[in-house]
Design a protein around this nucleic acid. Structure first.
Length: 271
DNA sequence: CCCGGAACCTGAAGGC
DNA sequence: TGCCTTCAGGTTCCGG
């Protein structure tokens, strides 16, 4: 599932090939994929525009066009962007046609992914919390975000309004690295625990980017290859495996309908 | 404002 | 072998 490190990898690997390219046409094969504007407006405003820059905010991938508009893609659960001159892969839901015969195939078995074309990117991203790898994300900011929240920490970390880009896998990994139980009430953390969590979030995300993202289910890089971050996971999707620190077996429990993996010994419950 | 649950989707996996 | 059920989870929406 694409989270911040996966979207960052896609951005990094796509950019060298598509910056400066003209979008000649877009084919939508699943009509609900387009969030805004209307299909007619969409085609009218995107055809013939040049891709000036590619950026990321949280889990959103943003194609900045020379017209001033931005094409915003969210891959949600199962989306991937495949760059190719070949035929569309299975589950292709949209095709961004570029000049020189290159296409970006938006593949998405689950059909959760969404595309928007907007004038003002802020309208989409303004609700997001700080970027965890930028200097705006400090331990103090994290502390303030966790204040007065009785929700289990794990659930809070998935809220994009607190910190942008963390999903189910990296929330579990960060909590393990910080040695904090996922069920702890968010407002119960000590200053030291917040400091550890802040560090762990950055560490886990940076390491995953170095490893080109985690391919636990449907994540593919633009060249069709998978990432290797999942082979470094300590707890995420490791149910029954042995903890690398203490040797006890990793548990999986549901928290707010989400599978949550942790080590009961290294991340003990606390009052 | 905060919280929790349903809905959106379909392939894969598990049960019988 | 095959049908049926359940599970997976990012985001939005809605009710409390």
């Amino acid at each position: 599932m694409p989270e911040l490190p996966e979207v960052e990898t896609i951005k990094n690997e796509l950019a060298p090939y598509i910056i400066g390219c003209i979008i000649t046409d877009v084919t939508l094969l699943w009509d609900r994929m387009l969030r805004q504007p209307s299909p007619a407006q969409f085609y009218h405003h995107i055809s013939g525009k040049k891709i000036a820059r590619l950026t990321r905010r949280g889990k959103y991938l943003i194609f900045r066009l020379d017209s001033g508009d931005s094409l915003i893609i969210h891959l949600k659960m199962s989306g991937s962007l495949i760059l190719s001159t070949d035929l569309p892969p299975k589950y292709t839901r949209a095709i961004i046609h570029l000049d020189k015969g290159v296409n970006i195939f938006f593949c998405d078995p689950r059909k959760f992914g969404r595309i928007s074309l907007v004038k003002d990117v802020d309208n989409i991203t303004e609700k997001l919390g700080p970027e965890p790898l930028e200097s705006t994300f400090t331990a103090e900011v994290l502390a303030q975000k966790l204040e007065k929240r009785k929700t289990p920490l794990k659930a809070v970390l998935l809220n994009q309004a607190l910190v942008a880009g963390i999903g189910n896998m990296y929330a579990d990994e960060a909590l393990f690295t910080a040695k904090i139980n996922p069920l702890r009430s968010a407002d119960s953390l000590t200053q030291d625990e917040i400091r550890r969590l802040h560090y762990a979030i950055k560490k886990v995300l940076l390491e995953a980017i170095k490893n080109k993202g985690a391919s636990v289910s449907n994540y593919f890089r633009p060249g069709g290859k998978i990432g290797r971050a999942h082979s470094h996971f300590q707890v995420a999707h490791q149910k029954g495996k042995l903890c690398s620190i203490c040797g006890n077996s990793i548990k999986r429990i549901p928290i707010r309908q989400r599978g949550s993996y942790y080590c009961p010994v290294c991340q003990p419950e606390k009052d």
